[in-house]
Every structure is written in structure tokens, then in C-alpha cells.
């Protein structure tokens, strides 16, 4: 997974973050990331509802997964670790 710049600094990571999950879905990957980096709780999705924050997008394999069901399987190349899941801050402001 590739985090946006602000969250890399917050989590003190420089590059891609790897997590291993049984069935790779948006929900399971985010669960794993938040377990490994508790400081990220609430910064990607709402802590109470689990809903993606308004200005966050999820991209992978040149596709926008932001509006996919959170329990849908991620693309195979993300599951195998060949392609990253990108967490992106929406373009806003100048």
C-alpha cells in the first residue's frame, strides 16, 4: 500500500507499506494497516462508521476503487503484492 505524504510522516514510514491478509479487500487491508499503525485510525476512514473520508480516494492498477464495496476482492495483482493499493488525498485547493 502507498500512503499519501501526510500519512507517511504520521506513521513514520518512507516507502510502501506491506500487510499480509487472508482475503484482500479494502476493509481487510485497512483493518491490517490500522492495526500495524494505530496512529492512522480515523485518518483514512471514519472510526465510528468505517466510511471513507470525503477527501480520500483508493486507486489500484489504474482503476478507481473508491466507490467499490469495501468487502470486494482487490485486483489480483494487488493481492499478490505486484501492484500497490494507493491511498490518495483528493485534489483540493491549489
Amino acid at each position: 500500500m502507498v500512503l499519501p505524504g501526510h500519512l507517511k510522516r504520521l506513521a513514520h514510514v518512507e516507502h510502501e507499506v506491506e500487510v499480509k491478509v487472508e482475503a484482500a479487500t479494502l476493509a481487510s487491508v485497512l483493518d491490517a494497516i490500522e492495526a500495524a499503525y494505530p496512529v492512522l485510525r480515523g485518518t483514512i476512514r471514519d472510526q465510528q462508521t468505517g466510511k471513507r473520508r470525503n477527501f480520500i480516494r483508493f486507486f489500484a492498477c489504474n482503476e478507481d476503487l473508491s466507490h467499490e464495496p469495501v468487502d470486494a476482492a482487490l485486483p489480483e495483482r494487488v493481492q499478490t503484492g505486484d501492484e500497490p493499493l494507493l491511498v490518495v488525498g483528493a485534489m483540493a485547493g491549489g
Binding site: 500519512l7 485518518t43 473520508r53 488525498g89
Partner: peptide, 8 residues
């Protein structure tokens, strides 16, 4: 805080 990532 930021509008992107909420409150820390």
C-alpha cells in the same frame, strides 16, 4: 488536523 485526514 487537515480536511483530508481529520483530527490527530
Amino acid at each position: 488536523s487537515t480536511g483530508w485526514h481529520g483530527q490527530v
